[in-house]
Write a protein that binds this DNA or RNA. Sequence first.
DNA 1: GTTGAAAATCTAGGTTT
DNA 2: AAACCTAGATTTTCAAC
Lengths: 153, 153
Amino acid sequence: MTEIDRIDRKILKFLQQDGRISTVDLAEKVGLSPTSTSDRVKRLQREGFIAGFGARLDPHRLGLELLVFVEVSLDKTTPDVFEKFAEAVRRAPEVLECHMVAGGFDYLVKTRVADMAAYRHFLGEILLALPGVKETRTYAVMEEVKSDGILPV
Amino acid sequence: MTEIDRIDRKILKFLQQDGRISTVDLAEKVGLSPTSTSDRVKRLQREGFIAGFGARLDPHRLGLELLVFVEVSLDKTTPDVFEKFAEAVRRAPEVLECHMVAGGFDYLVKTRVADMAAYRHFLGEILLALPGVKETRTYAVMEEVKSDGILPV
DNA sequence: GTTGAAAATCTAGGTTT
DNA sequence: AAACCTAGATTTTCAAC
């Protein structure tokens, strides 16, 4: 039920790299027949190892030239600031990721925007406008050394 | 050549959410025939808007329970520390992302590991073992508020 | 951008080890 | 239980419009 063998891991590795590989080609790579390969892929989906499939877009090609990380500290006097902040962030399309962290600040926000002007707008009009936001520190990305996000399977 | 219209944006949006949607279903959603939809998808790939397709795996289902961000500061006395560091990071499978940032530190590293023990091993044996690493600050993620990474198209 | 037929792929059933 | 094979159904591709 929850066991996952060497072949399953190979399947996951190849599907991460190419989510549209045909069952025939995938079967060839993992050394099984197309039918059993397809059965395994379905099982990996059904059991939640594969959450879904998606196209990887090139942000720069789409005019989103600036990647920015923002550290956010909240004013913890109101009880529901965290819930309010999380809700707003989930609705903001500029926010690609947002994580509550343990340490010096409360949330780490990853955002992509067209340019610095767009970021200033996002910071001033959206992020700082949220209730409870006490302090932010902005880190603009100069070079994306690695950004595939491929999980080690 | 580089123009991208409303229908292209719809295609990109749907393909981000479901990279394995059939051409027929995608055509239905964007209001075009399957053939022209397929032509557009091919063009969007050829012109670099779509970098590729991939399976989205569930890290928790794979036993990677801990998401950690690490701020890394380098000792900038040696000229090629940056290149050496970048090279090593690209080879490390635990590192999902690594960005050179402007601000208080040099690199922001995103990593997923099984548990705290695995993270301590990664930090001690891999990250701190790299030449030129002067200082690190670790932020363990307590809650992933948003992590889809869907680009606003 | 559309239509319609040929080719490739995927799916489902039954068979073997 | 897992892998496999064959045939029917879908989907994709490629021509002509």
